[in-house]
Amino acid sequence: QIFVKTLTGKTITLEVEPSDTIENVKAKIQDKEGIPPDQQRLIFAGKQLEDGRTLSDYNIQKESTLHLVL
């Protein structure tokens, strides 16, 4: 699982696999929060994550925290 922290300070927990794409993660966030993926920007280690890449591409491991910017 990974954590996604929103600007409001809320933390969302997501069940993911390293092979999941960023697009996939955004879809999971939409399921939980109702935020359309095209409004979501995910930041990890100061980098904006691209939809077509996977979590493992960015070396995002379990218990990692991503930041969600709208």
Rank of each mutant, 00 (worst) to 15 (best):
N59M: 08
F3P: 01
D38R: 10
I12M: 06
E63F: 12
Q39Y: 09
K32E: 07
T13V: 14
D57I: 03
T13G: 05
L49C: 05
R53A: 08
Q61M: 11
Q48K: 08
Q61A: 11
Q39N: 09
I29V: 05
K62Y: 15
D20V: 04
E63N: 14
T65Q: 06
R53Q: 09
S56C: 07
E33H: 08
G34I: 02
D57L: 03
Q30A: 14
D57T: 04
T13I: 13
V4N: 01
T54G: 03
D38L: 09
D20H: 06
L42Q: 00
E63T: 06
K26Q: 02
I22A: 02
I22C: 03
T8V: 08
V4H: 01
K28E: 03
V69R: 10
L68G: 01
Q39G: 06
S64N: 08
A27H: 12
L68C: 03
K10Y: 11
A27L: 14
Q1M: 13
K47S: 10
Q48V: 15
Q30G: 07
T8R: 10
K28P: 00
F3I: 07
F44E: 02
E63M: 10
P36H: 11
H67N: 09
R53E: 05
Y58M: 04
R41A: 08
Q48C: 15
P37S: 14
L55I: 10
I29K: 00
Q1G: 06
S64L: 04
F3V: 06
D20I: 05
A27E: 10
D31Y: 11
A27I: 14
V4A: 02
P18C: 11
E50R: 07
G34M: 05
L49T: 03
F3Y: 14
V69G: 06
I12Q: 02
P36W: 06
D20N: 07
T6V: 10
E23P: 03
V25K: 00
I60G: 01
G34Y: 03
K28A: 07
K62E: 13
K28G: 03
A27V: 12
I29M: 03
K32V: 11
T13P: 06
R41Q: 13
K26H: 02
G9T: 03
Q48S: 10
Q40H: 04
T6P: 04
I29R: 00
E23Y: 15
T65H: 15
R41F: 14
K5C: 15
N24S: 14
P37L: 13
T54V: 06
R53C: 12
E17K: 07
T13E: 07
R41E: 10
T54I: 06
G34K: 06
E50Y: 06
K10V: 09
D31L: 15
I2A: 02
N24P: 00
F3N: 05
D31A: 14
V25N: 00
I12S: 02
T8S: 15
K28S: 04
V16N: 02
Q30R: 12
D57Q: 06
P36N: 07
I12D: 00
D57A: 05
A27N: 12
L66A: 02
L68H: 01
Q61Y: 08
G9M: 04
R41M: 14
E50N: 07
I35P: 04
I22M: 04
D31N: 10
V25Q: 00
Q40V: 10
F3A: 04
G9P: 02
T54H: 06
L7W: 13
L42N: 00
S64P: 03
E17G: 08
K47V: 15
I2W: 02
I35S: 04
P37G: 07
K26I: 03
K26W: 03
A45S: 09
E23K: 12
T13L: 10
G34F: 04
Q1W: 14
E17W: 09
Q1P: 11
V16H: 05
L49Y: 00
E50A: 08
I43R: 06
G46V: 02
T8E: 13
A45L: 14
G46T: 04
T13C: 11
I29G: 00
S64Q: 09
I35A: 04
P18G: 10
T21R: 08
L55K: 00
L7F: 11
L14A: 02
L7K: 11
V4Y: 02
I43Y: 13
T21V: 05
F3T: 07
D38G: 11
E15G: 07
T6E: 04
L66F: 04
P18D: 09
T6I: 13
I43P: 00
I2G: 01
I60C: 03
I43Q: 08
G46A: 04
N59Q: 09
Q48E: 15
S56Y: 10
S64M: 11
I22G: 02
H67R: 07
Q40N: 03
E50D: 09
L49V: 04
T13Q: 08
V25W: 01
G46D: 07
L7R: 09
E17Q: 10
K47W: 07
I60H: 01
T13S: 10
L68Y: 02
T21Y: 08
Q39A: 09
T54K: 13
S19G: 11
V25G: 00
V16D: 00
